[in-house]
């Protein structure tokens, strides 16, 4: 590890998917194999007890990073390094990340009682000895996420979206993780319920000293949760900095576009001009800087050479030819 303060270090991580047509069609049509670079050369660290957020448009690779970090996908290239766990059954071994998904319905087994869903990791890893201790732990977890121990007897479909997300959080906490990967945990929820879940996640972070990798496309939510933000575009991190620094002084034109296009309740822009440009296909990314077809500042150089990731004035990194020198 580069620093003992880091919970996670990710180095030049890439993941490629083979999206070729079936072999026979390829032979008949004389088409080569096709690869999709979902994540390319991504490097970041997450400090212990902090929250790093990944933001960007759909298809930019956020969930792929989450799946790589939690081991659901194997990297094509690069390294993922967790700090040693300091508590729980895996003490001394690398931390294991638990994941919370966008759709709590899909991630909870509908045929199991909520109590059994939460107890499963406790039983599987033998975290408590005996049925009584397990039951007490499940009750404690239910209370921690703002449900009642009685709710353990009910089935997932008997709960609302927000309550189901509380159940998935309780389940994720059951294996006593120090690191949580949250992929759009509130995107399927109403703003009022989102506020309940975000407040809960902040409280748990303080009480349990959790470290978060937090994924969202909602910049206001990210601003509320994250200490640090990495902005992704077409598989790459284009800018990364402390939350306040990024909001105060976004340096990548894509970050600027994102910040400008979010309608803000507190300061609505009712004279918004139509802005052009759509995200390009990840199968056929533009040459040079992938953002150049949409970039208002693009120069000739931008369509030819991809900008390198370099130090960002004011801390962090940025990948743009025109970003101010440090």
């Amino acid at each position: 590890m580069r620093s003992a303060n880091n919970a996670l270090e990710v180095d030049q991580l890439s993941r490629t998917f083979d999206v070729s047509a079936p072999w026979l069609n390829r032979v008949i049509d004389r088409k080569p194999k096709r690869y999709l670079h979902a994540v390319q050369d991504v490097t970041f660290t997450v400090e212990k007890g902090k929250c790093l957020a990944l933001v960007g448009e759909s298809g930019c690779g956020k969930s792929t990073v989450a799946r790589l970090v939690t081991g659901l996908y194997a990297p094509s290239e690069g390294a993922i390094l967790f700090a040693p766990a300091v508590k729980g059954r895996g003490r001394g071994r690398p931390m294991e990340a638990q994941m919370i998904f966008q759709d709590p319905h899909a991630s909870l087994n509908p045929r199991w009682r909520v109590g059994d869903i939460i107890a499963e990791p406790i039983r599987e890893f033998g975290l408590r000895s005996g049925a009584e201790a397990t039951e007490a732990r499940v009750a404690e977890l239910l209370r921690t996420v703002g449900l009642s121990p009685d709710d353990g007897k009910r089935y997932p479909h008997e709960f609302s979206g927000g309550q189901r997300q509380r159940i998935s959080i309780a389940r994720a906490l059951a294996s006593e993780p120090e690191f949580l990967v949250c992929d759009e945990p509130t995107s399927a929820l109403d703003v009022s319920v989102q506020a309940q879940i975000l407040n809960l996640m902040r409280r748990l972070q303080d009480e349990l000293g959790l470290t978060y990798l937090f994924i969202s496309h909602n910049l206001a939510v990210v601003r509320h949760m994250a200490d640090r933000i990495a902005v992704m575009y077409l598989g790459r991190i284009v800018e990364e900095a402390d939350t306040e620094a990024l909001f105060a002084n976004p340096q990548h034109p894509y970050t600027q576009l994102l910040l400008q296009t979010i309608p803000d309740v507190a300061a609505p822009n009712r004279d918004r001009e139509l802005m052009g440009g759509e995200p390009p296909s990840p199968l056929d990314p533009p040459k040079g800087c992938a953002f150049h077809p949409r970039c208002p500042m693009a120069t000739d150089q931008c369509s030819k050479t991809a900008p390198e990731v370099r130090a960002r004035a004011g801390g962090g990194t940025v990948a743009c030819h025109l970003a101010p020198a440090t």
């Binding site: 609302s160 703003v191 975000l198 206001a220 509320h224 979010i262 309740v265 507190a266």
Partner: peptide, 23 residues
């Protein structure tokens, strides 16, 4: 009022969002 308070603002960060309990 509760609905408005529960929206995280882009402008400034608060410790805790206003929350309407229940559903």
């Amino acid at each position: 009022r509760g609905l408005m308070g529960s929206i995280p603002a882009l402008g400034a960060r608060v410790e805790r969002l206003a929350q309407i309990d229940g559903a």
